[in-house]
């Protein structure tokens, strides 16, 4: 029984790590420009498809496709931001919601056209399959890799934000955009770079998550709520808030599906409403 609970906790943390990896970029960009972006899942999907088609068509090893997915999704995000999204920073929230929702719809149809409606299969290397037994608990190797990977990325992000000049500029822009611009920080450039980094991480998450989240054209819509939830519950503009929120969501979702399968996604939606009402500005957020 105890090992059972620990196993679910482990799976939930792995799932939460993925949610965090995809959602953290959204948190930074939302905190920075107060821009409501429903289309973040599209970039995660792009990363997933890059990885899947590389490993299926040209036989590239799975781990080698990950950097390509990161760079590809990041470039896609950079182009989309420069051409489209930046026009809407000053627009009302309704316009942002509608525009990014339209972007999601079109991207779903485009993915359908290019890759078909079916689920994509990731080609896992053999050393990532199977489980390791630690103190009597079976831990999936792939999930172990997920958690380790996301741990490293979180550490790297934290160091970038707290120790580098770029990080200081980002923090300044999140706290007060006008004052930051007045001190000579190029806020527009900072935002483009953050957007590229965030969408790149989302692409990496989409590629890493093929086994757990699945990958089909409906992906951006199916997980839209989860990614937004990580940001809204965690609070936009931070790293710690979304990390906690992603872990809570991951564990509750996995536990709910295991213990009360007949309730389906019900638990996560109720949890979402309760968390939103209890913390209207997010768990660690500066801005709502």
């Amino acid at each position: 029984m105890a090992s059972n609970i620990l196993g679910i906790l482990f799976d939930g943390l792995a799932y939460g790590s993925l949610l965090f990896l995809i959602g953290v970029g959204l948190s930074i960009t939302m905190g920075l420009m107060n821009f409501i972006n429903l289309a973040h899942g599209t970039f995660a999907m792009a990363g997933g498809y890059i990885s899947a088609s590389l490993s299926q068509k040209s036989g590239m090893p799975f781990l080698a496709t990950l950097p390509v997915a990161f760079v590809g999704a990041g470039l896609f995000g950079l182009v989309a931001e420069r051409l489209l999204f930046r026009r809407l920073y000053k627009a009302p929230h309704l316009d942002q919601v509608l525009f990014t929702f339209g972007f999601v719809l079109s991207s779903i149809a485009a993915a359908h056209y290019f890759f078909g409606a079916g689920q994509q299969m990731g080609v896992m290397p053999s050393f990532l399959q199977g489980q390791i037994r630690v103190y009597g608990i079976d831990l999936g190797r792939y999930r172990l890799l997920l958690i380790a990977f996301v741990g490293l990325i979180t550490l790297a992000l934290h160091l970038i934000l707290s120790k580098t000049r770029f990080g200081a500029q980002v923090r300044a822009a999140v706290d007060n955009q006008d004052a930051a611009a007045g001190l000579g920080i190029n806020v527009g450039l900072i935002f483009s770079l953050c957007f590229a980094l965030g969408t790149g991480l989302a692409g990496l998450g989409g590629a890493l998550g093929i086994e757990v989240l699945g990958l089909d054209p409906g992906f951006p819509l199916k997980y839209m709520v989860y990614f937004l939830l990580v940001v809204v519950v965690g609070g936009a503009g931070t790293i710690r808030g979304p990390l906690i929120a992603a872990m809570i969501l991951g564990v509750f979702d996995v536990a709910g599906k295991y213990y009360v399968p007949q309730a389906g996604a019900f638990i996560i939606y109720v949890l979402m409403i309760v968390l939103l009402l209890a913390f209207p500005t997010g768990l660690g957020g500066k801005r709502a």
């Binding site: 409501i36 929230h93 709520v225 937004l228 809204v232 979402m272 939103l276 009402l277 209207p280």
Partner: peptide
């Protein structure tokens, strides 16, 4: 309760 984004999420929820 809450502002724009929270409202959107609550209605969605």
């Amino acid at each position: 309760r809450g502002k724009d984004l929270t409202r959107l999420m609550v209605t969605l929820g």
